[in-house]
């Protein structure tokens, strides 16, 4: 608990206490803890001097913030146009079936979070799935299944 407290302080110290650093701080906290816990949200508000309503409004507006803990592994199915034409919707649906969660959600055991993203900019390899930091180009339902079994 104590260690965590110093860590959040260290993150807060990266930015001056001005409202315009709200999003940067939320991003850093999201990156560090995988989600934005209510107590951290309050600390950020105090630091940059905005009411909780503004931080909550921002954190629920942008897609990259999560108010609940995310899974250990992030699965991101690219649903850019090129990937869509090459069957990304079928990939997303098969992952929903296999993992038993809808896109945008995390499995109960907190192993996997499943998301669709607008475009990863690697259209040459459509359809593309990103699992953590690995790009899987020309992805197939079976290929993804195999990959997930390995991790």
């Amino acid at each position: 608990m104590k260690k965590k407290a110093t860590e959040i302080d260290a993150i807060l110290d990266r930015y001056p206490g001005e409202p315009r650093y709200l999003i940067s701080l939320l991003q850093d906290v999201q990156a560090e803890y995988n989600y934005i816990a209510p107590e951290n949200m309050t600390l950020i508000c105090d630091h940059v001097g905005v009411p909780l309503t503004q931080a909550w409004s921002v954190a629920t507006f942008y897609k990259s913030f999560s108010l609940e803990p995310r899974g250990e592994h992030e699965i991101r199915v690219c649903c850019g146009t090129a990937c869509h034409l090459k069957g990304s919707e079928r990939l997303a649906q098969s992952l929903e079936r296999d993992l038993g969660v809808e896109r945008g959600h995390t499995t109960e055991d907190l192993r996997f979070s499943l998301d669709t993203v607008n475009c990863l900019g690697a259209c040459a390899l459509a359809p593309m799935v990103m699992i953590d930091d690995d790009y899987i180009g020309g992805a197939t339902q079976r290929g993804i299944r195999k990959y997930l079994k390995k991790i």
């Binding site: 409202p19 650093y21 999003i23 939320l26 503004q54 409004s57 921002v58 507006f61 942008y62």
Partner: peptide
């Protein structure tokens, strides 16, 4: 932070201002 609408100038400014 993940919002297509921020390609719109005034939305982008809002985002830079922390909103």
């Amino acid at each position: 932070a993940g919002a297509f609408v921020c390609g719109e100038s005034t939305a982008l400014f809002s985002s830079i201002e922390g909103k």
